[in-house]
């Protein structure tokens, strides 16, 4: 499997989905953005599009479009606490440079 979710991430996603009340899973992707050009995207997935690839991670459906998958292959998604904030963190072996604001990256 190309993208892995840690148990902590899986738990948080499941909770979030049930709180939201709808959605078939999680959609991961990359989009163009500020500093270095690309940024991660985490959204609720409501439907599957023709170019999507699907993974099942411990019962959570993860949906990624083909183009994003090129960048996300081998990535691990974790849900952690850093200081006073908590949220998702991507660990991507493809990433080379990281922009100062920590949000976007270049592969």
């Amino acid at each position: 499997m190309a993208i892995r979710l840690t148990p902590s991430a899986v738990k948080h996603i499941q909770t979030s989905l049930s709180k939201r009340g709808k959605g078939i899973g999680l959609r991961l992707g990359v989009k163009t953005s500020g500093c270095s050009g690309l940024a991660y995207k985490i959204e609720y997935a409501d439907e599957i599009h023709p170019e999507d690839v699907q993974f099942d991670s411990d019962g959570v459906l993860v949906v990624v479009d083909k183009k994003s998958l090129l960048y996300l292959d081998g990535t691990r998604l974790d849900y952690i606490r850093e200081g006073l904030s908590e949220g998702f963190k991507f660990e991507n072996p493809n990433v080379r440079a990281q922009c100062g604001c920590g949000e976007s990256f270049t592969v």
Binding site: Y44, D46, G87, K89
Partner: peptide, 8 residues
Amino acid sequence: MLLQISEP
């Protein structure tokens, strides 16, 4: 930078 799940 930690991310949250956003609406599509």
